[in-house]
Design a protein around this nucleic acid. Structure first.
Lengths: 124, 124
DNA sequence: ACACTGTCTCGACGTTTGTCGAATCAGAGA
DNA sequence: TCTCTGATTCGACAAACGTCGAGACAGTGT
């Protein structure tokens, strides 16, 4: 799991910088839309949105799958599948330590989504 | 079209107020996730993300379907379907004036999504 | 009344998604 | 080495999705 899924480079257009103006300020080009839509899509399932929230708000900056799974009425494989979706969207990162696997948020992409949705800047 | 789709009340939990803390600050409850996930899902398609961007950045605060459709290599019905999805997610509003239909963003929900994704508050 | 234009609805289609059970892989420990 | 537990992968299946063409609806103008 330290070796992440290889197709993660979908979303490293951003090196952490603001990237793109809010959608209320200018149209986003097709390529940007194609790049960012998968991240929104990944958040577009209630289970994954909750998972993302649990991961992002984990007190230690990370959380064990063993703490995520029992929070849902779903099987382990299903949770694992959702976590993979979040991983492939570039929203989270996973690391195995011993028997357990820990998930961490990837703040860069999250910030990018947030700034895209940001409401009108004070002046513009 | 002035009579909007009736199931729009999906997302008027918010009367415009901040609603919920960022996911990086606390876990969102299942009901909130169920309420907001459809909005993220609606943004999870490249075409809809671009549509949303065109609508949100329209200089007059609104934009005609006749200006949206030719921006894509898709048929009218398909664009109409995507617009309906955005409408039902509560992200946009539509109004018919004469022959044309104009779409407007609904900033309340957009702001809610943005604040949910907001990065760590300065102190926390 | 009629024709024309813009938009939406309806049905159909292939593809993708969410879920599960079974099987597999990765480490820990006896 | 063998077994046990935690997590992932695989295969299957029903449901939902994105797209289209054909048809219907709404307004304008003749």
């Amino acid at each position: 799991m330290s070796k992440q899924t290889p197709e993660l480079n979908l979303v490293d257009l951003n090196a952490g910088q603001p990237c793109c103006a809010p959608i209320s300020e200018q149209r986003i080009p097709a390529e940007t839309a194609a790049l960012l839509a998968p991240a929104f899509k990944a958040l577009g399932d209630p289970v994954r949105l909750q998972l993302m929230s649990m991961i992002a708000s984990a007190p230690d900056g990370e959380i064990c799958v063993c703490d995520l799974t029992p929070a849902f009425d779903l099987t382990g494989p299903t949770i694992s599948h959702h976590l993979k979706t979040l991983r492939e969207a570039g929203l989270v990162d996973a690391e195995r330590r011993g028997t357990w696997v820990y998930y961490r948020p990837r703040p860069a992409l999250i910030a990018q989504l947030a700034s895209l949705l940001a409401v009108q800047a004070p002046v513009g």
